[in-house]
């Protein structure tokens, strides 16, 4: 359709109830202002959010799927890292 595609942006929306911005998808836009406008039109049609972040997709550095084993498998047998080995006294509501 377009001869030159506009840059891709990743969109993060802060929901009405949630605390964190959450990744919801991506879109094309010429710059940040247009990306926020497009995010409003694409991802906030049903009152999904009260805040928008956009980041140029090119600015995101991702881990290599091929490194999956080296990166994530070593954690597999370290169950002691999970906070499940404590006795929580009955009277404590939040920890």
């Amino acid at each position: 359709m377009q001869e030159r595609e506009l840059p891709l942006w990743e969109v993060f929306i802060r929901s009405r109830t949630g605390l964190n911005h959450r990744h919801v998808g991506s879109l094309h836009a010429a710059d940040a202002a247009m990306a926020i406008q497009n995010a409003r039109d694409l991802y906030c049609r049903r009152q999904e959010g009260i805040g928008i972040w956009v980041v140029e997709s090119a600015a995101i550095h991702a881990s290599d799927p091929a490194d999956k084993d080296a990166l994530f498998d070593p954690a597999e047998d370290k169950i002691y890292r999970h906070p499940t080995f404590y006795d929580v006294p009955d009277g404590v509501e939040n920890i």
Binding site: M1, Q2, L6, L27, H28, A29, Q37, N38, D41, L42, R45
Partner: peptide, 12 residues
């Protein structure tokens, strides 16, 4: 519309 994003904006 010239692009999907703008199509949504126009429809909105």
């Amino acid at each position: 519309a010239p692009m999907l994003e703008e199509e949504m904006a126009l429809a909105n």
